[in-house]
């Protein structure tokens, strides 16, 4: 319910912003030598000559999966939601988004795995050994990670590891499944994404190290952990069953929300490493005043975030009995 309201609000806001910008996509479509005739034709063709609410209504109608009731008035007639066509290259926005989505998904989810792989062990170990050398190094890492901007880190990594050392490719994307030329398949995919992942994961890894460390330390001080020790439980069992299970509960929620936020953060990383993902698509579309494409990315991203939130809520209810039963 809320998700639906949110969804409508986001799309309307995008429309209004575009309307407010003093730029005419029809004029752009006609190129340098725009005649009044051409602009008018283009405007009609693109639909920008209609009032704002009509444009939005049409957009919304295309998007709905139900296209009215069927002939017998009982079974609804389904169709694929349609995001319209791009103003600039007349490709369907559906295909643009669907082409870009896997790239961003690879980046974001790969990045999430990357940052959790760093954050979990570092966070837990530094919680177990507060003030040790490892803990101090981790804290410095956290400080740097939180203060540094991803673009700067990305450029730094690209320069030293990519350009100077030549260990990893600086740009380009290889498809996970369909090999094209010598670039493709899981290995190439991962190889090309190492730098973007690292860049992307840096900030979040830092945040998560700090969060996991704090959570684990808090859980270690809980009475039930003392109870478990008083039962005679060995330390590994205390950790696994009593400390981590409770300490990582909030991490799950955070992870869900942060992946949503990370979709936004992907814009920087994608532009640094030239990845043809959603972020880059959105930037290009905005530069060209390409409303349908921008709107498509917005719609898709909103849907993803809503879905993620839902998944996280369900997951949380599943792992935390206190929520499940209330």
């Amino acid at each position: 319910m809320w998700a639906f309201v949110l969804f409508i609000a986001v799309t309307i806001v995008t429309y209004v912003i575009f309307y407010a910008i003093p730029a005419n996509p029809a004029r752009l479509a006609c190129g340098q030598r725009a005649t009044a005739e051409c602009i008018k034709r283009a405007a009609h063709y693109l639909g920008t000559d209609r009032p704002l609410y009509v444009q939005y209504g049409k957009f919304f109608g295309r998007l709905m999966p139900v296209a009215g009731l069927g002939p017998n008035n009982f079974s609804p007639h389904f169709k694929t939601p349609n995001l319209g066509r791009s103003f600039t290259n007349r490709l369907t926005v559906n295909s643009v988004v669907l082409n870009a989505a896997p790239v961003t998904a690879s980046l974001v989810f790969g990045g999430a795995v990357f940052w959790m792989l760093i954050a979990l062990p570092v966070g837990i170990l530094s919680a177990l050994r507060p003030r040790s050398l490892l803990d101090r190094i981790a804290m410095v890492f956290v400080l740097v990670g939180i203060s540094a901007h991803p673009v700067w880190i990305g450029l730094l990594l690209a320069y030293f590891l990519g350009f100077k050392a030549g260990v990893f490719p600086i740009t380009g994307y290889c498809d996970f499944i369909n090999p094209s030329g010598n670039c493709g398949g899981p290995v190439q995919w991962a190889y090309h994404l190492v730098l973007p992942w690292a860049t992307f994961a840096f900030l979040f890894a830092a945040l998560y190290v700090r969060m996991i460390r704090a959570n684990v330390m808090e859980a270690l001080g809980e009475d039930y952990v003392r109870t478990a020790r008083a039962k005679g439980a060995p330390e590994w069992l205390v950790m696994r069953s009593h400390v981590l299970r409770n300490a990582l509960l909030p991490v799950v929620t955070m992870l869900g929300m942060d992946i949503g936020i990370a979709l936004g953060g992907a814009i920087f990383t994608e532009s640094v490493f030239g990845l043809p993902g959603l972020g880059k698509t959105a930037i290009q579309a905005i530069e060209n005043f390409d409303l349908p494409t921008t709107q498509g990315v917005v719609v898709f991203a909103t849907l993803c975030i809503i879905l993620l939130t839902l998944v996280v809520d369900l997951l949380y209810a599943w792992i935390d009995p206190r929520i499940r039963l209330t």
Binding site: Y224, R226, T227, A228, A230, N246, L249, D320, P321, R322
Partner: peptide
């Protein structure tokens, strides 16, 4: 020795049991 020869109960029963495990499991674990 802990838990088998010497056992301990604590002041705050609200926080001394692990909230995410069933009590049957916590007893059986002991």
């Amino acid at each position: 020795i802990r838990g088998s020869e010497i056992a301990m109960i604590f002041q705050d029963p609200m926080t001394s049991l692990n909230p995410v495990h069933k009590i049957g499991a916590q007893l059986a674990e002991a």
